[in-house]
């Protein structure tokens, strides 16, 4: 792995699972399945409805946000890690509840990928980040609040 070239590694990753990430370049094959409506939705409810077609979502304690900040250091680039111990994960989707367009990313995972993701997102204001995981064909979610503050005055 350490000797593997970055380009080769990326190719391998894309073969393993197709990633759809808002605002980044994606291979044409994936573009075909681009969930434009969900990404453009203006509310969390509407986005979830568009991407999951109204399938019920159950809360789960098995979805984690390792090292998620409680206060955003820089709201323009908030690091978010998602990890889950749920079995047979095929899709992980991230929403930032009160962003103008809440759906931030959705990832399709093959069975050769460990369900563990890292990304950075822009946050408009204090709100929940919501992860929805598809496991054994069912949907599970977890959320955590990240605070966006004007700062200053500490100390």
């Amino acid at each position: 792995m350490t000797n593997m070239k970055r380009r080769v590694f990326l190719k391998g990753a894309l073969t393993a699972g197709g990633a759809v990430l808002a605002g980044t370049l994606v291979p044409r094959a994936v573009l075909a399945a681009w969930p434009a409506k969900a990404f453009d939705a203006k509310s969390l409810d509407a986005a979830e409805k568009d991407i999951f077609g109204g399938t019920p979502i159950a809360e789960s304690g098995k979805i984690h946000f390792p090292e998620l900040p409680t206060l955003a250091q820089d709201a323009r680039s908030v690091p978010i890690n998602i990890a889950t111990t749920l079995p047979n994960v095929t899709q992980i989707t991230l929403f930032v509840a009160k962003n103008p367009r809440p759906m931030a990313a959705t990832y399709h995972l093959s069975d050769r990928v460990e369900p563990k993701l890292s990304m950075r997102v822009k946050m408009a204001k204090t709100t929940d980040v919501v992860a929805v995981v598809k496991s054994d064909g069912k949907l599970y979610s977890a959320k955590r609040k990240v605070k966006v503050t004007i700062g200053g005055c500490g100390g």
Binding site: P66, E67, P69, T70, L71, A72, Q73, D74, P79, T149, G151, G152, C153, G154, G155
Partner: peptide
């Protein structure tokens, strides 16, 4: 919370947090 409470531009390449896991 140094980069929030104080100027982040003083330490532009450093990231801070409670980092309970680490």
């Amino acid at each position: 919370f140094t980069p929030i409470a104080n100027p982040a531009y003083m330490i532009p390449n450093w990231s801070f947090g409670i980092d309970q896991g680490r």
